[in-house]
């Protein structure tokens, strides 16, 4: 690609000048753009914990690190667990909006694209620095392939909310296994969610919406929330208006399709 070198140079220059400022400035999105699709089946060069117990959250949520008498507990424990997850958080609009809304919950954005992850991380860092003692301490972002490694981060029943906002539609039938909602992946979401926990989905692609509803509805561990419950949920509105993609769709006067699903108790056996 011809523009590749230029882009890289700009990016490097930006990184340099940013470092000189010393001020906590918000990162600029244009230097973090990345192609919107990533192959979820690829190995990438991901770092992920071997198991949830091996995960060191202390750098992501420094305000919530346990003050244990012994410092040699490794990894350091947090005072509370991550409970809200945004799968494919993109540029993190939802996280920034949810952070003040759910101040007592730890939330994590998961994004597979490294540049985009870096943007969100820097943005959170800048917001934290600009608002000392304020919100944003409870939000973090890391690079991960959730389709493969969700159980490496979260224990059974650890989560109360999972957001899946404007996922890659993967239109081709042979790419459907790459969709973030599928019969088999829903089992993993059910594993990480506690009974009563909620999966939020939103998309501007009608057929994908139908697909997500069909597959979550068909899964015995989930039931769809009624329209009234949907509207009563404060997170629905945030999801509609605050995600970057949601704003874009609004600008284009597109439609948005929302569906919420509750995790049911496992049947006895």
């Amino acid at each position: 690609m011809v523009t590749e070198g230029k882009k890289k140079a700009h990016r490097a220059q930006y990184q340099k000048s940013k470092a000189q400022d010393g001020l906590a400035q918000l990162p600029r999105k244009r230097f973090y753009r990345q192609r919107a699709h990533a192959n979820p089946f690829s190995d990438h060069t991901l770092t992920y914990p071997a198991s949830p117990d091996a995960m060191d959250w202390s750098t992501y949520f420094p305000d919530y690190v346990q003050d244990s008498a012994s410092d040699d507990v490794s990894p350091k424990r947090l005072t509370k667990d991550v409970e809200v997850v945004d799968i494919g958080c993109g540029f993190g609009g939802l996280l920034m909006a949810l952070s003040p809304l759910l101040p007592d919950k730890l939330m994590l954005g998961l994004e597979i694209r490294s540049q985009v992850t870096a943007y969100v991380q820097e943005k959170i860092w800048a917001l934290r620095t600009q608002n000392p003692g304020g919100p944003y301490q409870n939000a973090a972002c890391l690079r991960a392939n959730t389709m493969k490694f969700l159980p490496n981060f979260f224990r059974k029943g650890q989560l109360s909310k999972i957001f899946i906002c404007f996922p890659d539609p993967h239109f081709k039938a042979r790419k459907h296994k790459a969709r973030i909602i599928s019969t088999t992946l829903n089992s993993e979401y059910a594993y990480a969610l506690r009974p009563g926990g909620i999966v939020y989905t939103i998309t501007d692609v009608k057929s994908l919406h139908e697909w997500m509803v069909e597959h979550l509805d068909a899964h015995p561990s989930f039931e769809r929330l009624s329209k009234e419950e949907e509207e009563a949920d404060e997170c629905t509105k945030v999801m509609m208006t605050e995600t970057e993609e949601g704003k874009k769709v609004t600008r284009n006067q597109g439609e948005k399709f929302v569906a919420l699903f509750r995790r049911l108790e496992d049947p006895p056996w």
Binding site: K7, R33, Q34, R35, H37, A38, D43, H44, T45, S114
Partner: peptide, 9 residues
């Protein structure tokens, strides 16, 4: 396959 520069890994 680092996909950092937007290439499909």
């Amino acid at each position: 396959g680092e996909d950092g520069e937007g290439g499909d890994a």
